[in-house]
Write a protein that binds this DNA or RNA. Structure first.
Lengths: 345, 345
DNA sequence: AGGCATAATTTAAACGTTTAACAATGGTTT
DNA sequence: AAACCATTGTTAAACGTTTAAATTATGCCT
């Protein structure tokens, strides 16, 4: 409360406030003796420049806004905290901070962005869960407000984004299964309108084609990002006649893979031997599932890092190297897919 | 960038900036006709008051600092994102925002707090993972800086905190097991120095005493908050001679309970029938474990809500109703402990 | 008509910095 | 000796609000 201002320091050192500012910020030559006197005075009084005043004068906030959609209780988002941590640390390295605001629905979220933009609460945004026709992207682009996005939107929109190459990841997963001897591989997909889901599905299709395996239409099951739907979808897969029944399942998320695991177990199958399962995200629990789940890990730290530094370059008007970046997920092989499979059909 | 200021509005409406401020903030009577003119002008220009300037003048930031320790990859913290969401939403309702900064080690964290305090980056803090002799609490208290804590510290320190009554929770869990017919109940504890772990252990001891059951020293196993240690501890429990071997295990966290589940299964036991297991936190995955895990749910939303409103009351110099609050966890009974147990020893 | 309370509006200071422009000083060059 | 330059310091404006105090306008009462 009794905070000490630059004026107090100036008085204490017997100089003007300008001199104090110059000394403390090293922004101009100052005589050696004066410099020392100012430093001593500042130290003695425990002076630290008030950040609000500094921000006002610089017309910036050194704050980056980040909002996310709360995860429903029956789901889990395994990377939200890791992601937040990574952007916050990266930001701190550049002397920026993260302002976190969750937002319920899309409209509330959009108006939150607009409000914060107008009142100058943040210098830029980091978006996540970006999708086709994303209103936020439209709004920010048309306002020329700086932002970066974790996730792509429409192909022909030019803005700064980084995404995980889901197609490449699932392609690798498919190859892995094929190399283990699997011929009938199923895929649990997200709804049509999900961009991310779309790419992951595409990776599966590419992998099957590459291996010269025909895809039974029954093998592609829509299951939202829900455990229950995933469980039910697996039951449908297991109910297929033997020669059509898949011996491996790739799920679009670890939560869904968990549904597969449990459905298979309850159906009397031993995953890892009778059936292979692969998830996506490499959630912390993946390694503790029974059996331990093979999954695709996203390089969350790297993504956070690069998102932040790209945004900050943009804020400083520096040229951006790559305006769009695809990062490769890595397949973490565990017991759920580690046993070679010899077809018994 | 070409942001419109209060001066622009004043000019547009042909009045002074003071009048504009009065109208827009409704902080003083203004003539009906003028009021309307100002409103129109503000609307026409799309004016929104700059928040940094407002904050400087009010010498506040309307920001609440929140820091957390990153969870190691082999662990998971099931409530960190839910908690963040709940405080951010509660804060938004009062027109405050959350500034999130993770911090690696204790010392870095402390200096981050001090720095932010001095430069006036936030109006107050929300602490988590508070523990005995917590340096942060000491520092903030001695600087008279406003903060609230999720978690207790030393008994005789007077500061604002809310905590979950771990003892009551585990007591309830113990009673539940006793009522299911269990006589030999084990407890997987956190290290000595953990305050939270201490209370949870105490709840177990109380429950056993209340039921008149002697506690075998082997039944209390220290296992950090780690899966592996928990798994190993369970193996030790299962290796006990039959008449000493516990038929139920309470773990101090869901992660640990998962270790128990897997160790029991690999040891040939069917949890839910041969053995009961209870966790703590009611993580999203608890319901999807095999078998579904009974666990103690923390009222995270309520806690976040009340932490924020208490802090804001403190910031506004309002009297605080309860300076210390214990909230009750609720036992969510699932398959892992739902089958009555008839002792066969 | 003068006095006076009340209402409406403006002026100007304040919040705490940074920084462009200016002034003083002393030394060097022509 | 005058002009010039480099160095060091100060003055004052600016960032965009809010608000206490001063000023002006309005209506009412005697």
């Amino acid at each position: 409360m009794p905070s000490v201002t630059i004026r107090d320091v100036a008085k204490e050192a017997g100089v003007s406030t300008a001199t104090v500012s110059y000394v403390l910020n090293d922004s101009r030559r100052v005589g050696g003796e004066t410099r020392e006197r100012v430093r001593q005075a500042a130290l003695r009084l425990g002076y630290r420049a008030n950040i609000t005043a500094r921000n006002l004068q610089a017309s910036e906030t050194r704050l980056i806004g980040y909002s996310w959609r709360p995860t429903p209780t029956e789901q889990f988002n395994p990377i939200v905290d890791k992601f937040l941590q990574s952007i916050a640390e990266a930001a701190a390295r550049h002397d920026y901070r993260i302002l976190a605001f969750p937002s319920m629905d899309v409209h509330q979220e959009l108006s939150a962005y607009e409000e914060m933009m107008l009142i100058g609460q943040v210098d830029g945004f980091i978006l996540t869960n970006t999708n086709f026709d994303d209103e936020r992207v439209l709004a920010l682009v048309s306002n020329h407000f700086p932002f970066v996005s974790f996730g792509r939107a429409n192909q022909d929109w030019d803005f700064l984004w980084i995404d995980v190459d889901g197609a490449a990841g699932v392609l690798e997963a498919t190859r892995h299964l094929v190399s283990q001897g699997h011929l009938r591989i199923a895929f649990l997909a997200w709804p049509e309108k999900s961009q991310t889901g779309h790419y992951r599905l595409q990776g599966y299709l590419n992998g099957m084609e590459e291996a010269g395996l025909a895809v039974d239409t029954e093998w592609i099951q829509l299951a939202g990002n829900f455990y229950e739907e995933s469980y039910a979808a697996t039951q449908r897969l297991l109910a297929l006649p033997l020669e059509h029944r898949p011996s491996a399942v790739i799920a679009s998320s670890d939560l869904m893979a968990l549904g597969v695991l449990n459905a298979a177990w309850n159906g009397g199958l031993e995953v890892g031997r009778d059936m292979a399962v692969i998830g996506f995200d490499d959630a912390p629990i993946a390694r503790y599932m029974r059996p331990a789940l093979t999954s695709l890990a996203q390089p969350v730290d790297k993504i956070g890092d690069q998102l932040v530094s790209t945004l900050i370059d943009e804020l400083n008007g520096q040229p951006i190297g790559e305006r769009q970046v695809l990062m490769q997920p890595t397949l973490v092989v565990r017991a759920s897919s580690a046993t070679p499979y010899s077809d018994r059909s």
